[in-house]
Design a protein around this nucleic acid. Structure first.
Lengths: 190, 190
DNA sequence: ACCATTCCGATACAGAGCGTAACGGAAGTA
DNA sequence: TACTTCCGTTACGCTCTGTATCGGAATGGT
């Protein structure tokens, strides 16, 4: 029997006694959430469907996550956003890798399906807002100037939302990355 | 009796006979939607509540708009986004006015409450996606290079979402606008 | 002026999903 | 072995949705 530490058990004040949770359920739920997210999208995602696919029931989900959005947040961003921004420098090459990294991070199928819904959810739930900021900040983003992050991540998110077709395949995708990098490093050419 | 042309009656193939809609209801619903959006937020917005405040019933709403998101879209962006981007030039002053305009547009209370929810909705509804793009494009945004729009609008949206407090009041707000403008016009300073 | 048509607004009806309370049982501790 | 604690499940009431249905109002034609 797998007796793995649950991701939600890490609150410090939690007693050690009593029956522990089945880690198998945590894993199954997170996997089911990611799958359903890609298959159906956030809008049609229900706790009932997740519980059913994970082979459990809704109350088991309520015990682990305070809301559907929290669950999605954990399922969609396990560690995706820590990788792309490795440098905080500002040479052209570093900026370009940040732009490409941001675009890649938001292009991940699960993240892409989750992000818009999470954006809507964080405006209604301050605790989710904090959780998301913490996940962002705990990665390799430390030290990056906030406005620079706004421009890069904002542009990637916004473009992927408004005209995803331009960023889906390779000729136009690189063109976009180049142009954004140019705007940030060289300024607007008249 | 007011017999005003309804906003949704403009479909060309619509016959002229029969009882026309009451424009009073269109107005009341749009106003109720905007009010509830600001008071409760998108997440707690229901068609039932809108209909009740507007003094009508849900079926009347279903006849006018195909979904809640379409209604919100029309209530939140009557003409807000047509104003801010007046120029397509790229002098520092023009870029700055575009950045400030984008931030102002997304800072409008109704738009601010609606935008995140709409973002989530357009990923699930292609017709809404088209409607939103059309509204964007029909304004004064024509002629602006797409990547430039991505950077400016994306940065404003993203920043307002992640750290709204920095943009709420005046000292830091102008600092942010200046920094974004600098990034776009002058490039990253080392 | 009247009639027929067309469509409006309101009432009513299933169906789905949510959030929680209550219960029997399993996994730990002493 | 007895006790404690908390798990997972079943079950319930509620809200909201989306649609089918019905009487009635506002037009155009004669």
């Amino acid at each position: 029997m797998v007796t793995q530490t649950s991701l939600t058990d890490q609150s410090p004040g939690r007693p050690r006694t009593g029956r522990p949770r089945e880690g198998r359920i945590d894993d199954a739920v997170l996997r089911a959430t990611a799958e359903l997210l890609v298959e159906q999208g956030y809008a049609d995602l229900t706790l009932t469907a997740i519980a059913e696919r994970a082979g459990t029931t809704r109350p088991a989900l309520y015990r682990r996550w305070p809301s559907l959005a929290h669950l999605v947040h954990e399922a969609a961003f396990p560690a995706v956003l820590t990788g792309p921004f490795e440098s905080s420098g500002s040479t052209t090459e570093e900026i370009r890798s940040m732009v490409a990294g941001a675009l890649a991070a938001f292009s991940d199928p699960v993240a892409r399906a989750a992000a818009p819904g999470l954006v809507a959810a964080i405006t209604a739930d301050p605790s989710l807002h904090r959780a998301l900021l913490e996940r962002f900040a705990s990665g390799a983003l430390v030290g990056i100037e906030q406005p620079l992050l706004d421009v890069i991540a904002g542009a990637a998110f916004f473009a992927l939302l408004l005209h995803p077709d331009d960023l889906a395949e390779e000729p136009t995708r690189s063109v976009w990355i180049d142009r954004i990098t140019d705007l940030i490093t060289e300024g607007t050419g008249t």
